[in-house]
Amino acid sequence: MTSDKRTDYWKANLRLLVVLLLIWFSVSFGFGILLVEPLNAIQLGGYPLGFWFAQQGSIYVFVVLIFVYAGLMNRLDKKFDVGED
Rank of each mutant, 00 (worst) to 15 (best):
P38L: 07
D4R: 11
G50N: 03
V27F: 02
L39E: 01
G30A: 02
S3Q: 15
F53D: 00
V36H: 04
L65E: 00
V64H: 07
T2E: 07
L20G: 01
G32F: 00
P38E: 12
I23H: 03
L21F: 13
E37D: 15
L34M: 12
Y9V: 00
D85P: 12
L21I: 09
N74F: 15
G50M: 02
V64R: 08
G46A: 09
G57E: 02
M73R: 13
F80G: 01
F29T: 09
M73V: 12
G45N: 06
I23S: 03
F67K: 08
K11G: 04
F51V: 14
K5Q: 11
E37W: 07
V18K: 07
K79G: 04
F67L: 12
L76T: 08
G32D: 01
G46P: 01
P38Q: 13
L20V: 04
D81R: 14
F80A: 02
T7G: 03
M1N: 11
V63P: 01
S26G: 10
V18D: 02
L16V: 07
L65V: 05
E84L: 14
K11F: 08
L44A: 06
A54M: 06
R6C: 05
K5I: 03
R6G: 02
Q43Y: 06
L17A: 15
D8A: 04
A70R: 13
G30Y: 01
L72G: 00
Y69P: 01
T7W: 11
W10L: 15
K78T: 10
I33T: 09
L34A: 11
R75M: 12
L14P: 02
I59T: 09
L21M: 15
W24K: 05
F25S: 08
D77H: 12
I42K: 02
T2Y: 06
A41P: 02
S58L: 02
P38N: 14
F80W: 10
P38Y: 09
E84I: 12
L44V: 14
L44K: 04
Y9R: 07
N74V: 12
D81Y: 07
L49E: 03
P48N: 13
L20S: 03
Y9A: 01
A70L: 15
L65C: 05
A54Y: 04
V61A: 04
K11I: 08
L14N: 08
V63Y: 12
F53A: 00
G30C: 03
V64A: 15
A41V: 09
I42Y: 09
V68E: 00
V63Q: 11
Y47P: 06
A54Q: 10
N13I: 04
I33S: 09
R6H: 10
K78I: 10
E37T: 14
R75V: 13
P38A: 13
K5L: 09
Y60C: 05
L17P: 04
L17H: 14
A41Y: 11
L35K: 05
N13D: 15
F62D: 04
V36L: 08
L39C: 04
L16H: 03
L22T: 08
R15W: 12
L34S: 11
N40V: 07
L76H: 06
L34Q: 11
L20D: 02
L72K: 08
I59M: 10
